[in-house]
């Protein structure tokens, strides 16, 4: 636990230097064209842990349900139990490389978790948060 504040500080200081992948860079450009000024890793983190109540059943969902609170850990599909490889690019080099893949999962998983598609601002924040991991 002692390491937590240090890691946090380190992440904070290093975050401007974290290189976005070409795919993420391209997506950022697209989002900026829609008028988004800035992307925030903190807001992305908040969204990642935010709990959403489903309109129909009242079921509560969040990203961490499947991807676990630690993005460096292996997750598990909430319904099927299928293993989900870690989201964090520092652990899983396959992450954030393919625009098509990123769009597919942002769309599918926002709909499942939030009950709607994410806005360009929310997607930008999430990607910013994920790439620091």
């Amino acid at each position: 636990m002692k390491l937590a504040p240090i890691t946090f500080l380190l992440t904070l200081t290093l975050s401007p230097f974290i290189q976005a992948t070409p795919a993420v860079e391209e997506l950022f450009t697209q989002y900026r064209q829609k008028g988004i000024q800035e992307f925030s890793a903190d807001l992305g983190k908040n969204l990642y842990f935010q709990e959403f109540k489903l309109a129909g059943t009242g079921e509560i969902r969040q990203c961490a349900d499947c991807h676990t609170p630690d993005l460096r850990a292996q997750g598990q599909h909430a319904e099927t139990g299928k293993i989900i490889e870690p989201l964090a690019p520092s652990i899983n080099r396959q992450r954030l490389l393919d625009i098509k893949e990123i769009n597919k999962w942002l769309k599918r998983n926002c709909k499942w978790t939030l009950g709607r598609e994410c806005t360009a601002q929310e997607k930008g924040n999430l990607l910013t948060f994920i790439q620091t991991q």
Binding site: E79, K104, K107, R108, K111, W112
Partner: peptide
Amino acid sequence: AEQHNHFEEDLS
């Protein structure tokens, strides 16, 4: 036909 609600997931 129901791919947008495939066991609660939108496959898109």
